[in-house]
């Protein structure tokens, strides 16, 4: 993950978490935070073949 960021992929494009199979509420929370953080980050325009083609 450090290498990805080192190579210029924005922090937050790759996220990790640990949720037990009993923690459905934590699952919902994490989905919400992950989605919100990626929304704030905006679309993936660099490490993306399709974006390069369109541009």
């Amino acid at each position: 993950m450090n290498l990805m960021e080192h190579m210029g992929i924005e922090p937050g494009r790759l996220q990790f978490s640990w949720i037990s199979s009993a923690e459905s509420t934590k699952f919902v929370d994490v989905v919400k935070t992950v989605t919100a953080s990626v929304k704030a980050l905006g679309p993936n325009t660099t490490y993306n073949k399709q974006a390069v083609k369109v541009a």
């Binding site: 960021e5 190579m7 210029g8 992929i9 924005e10 922090p11």
Partner: peptide, 8 residues
Amino acid sequence: PQEKWQYF
């Protein structure tokens, strides 16, 4: 991040 991307 942008500079890194450009550097690589």
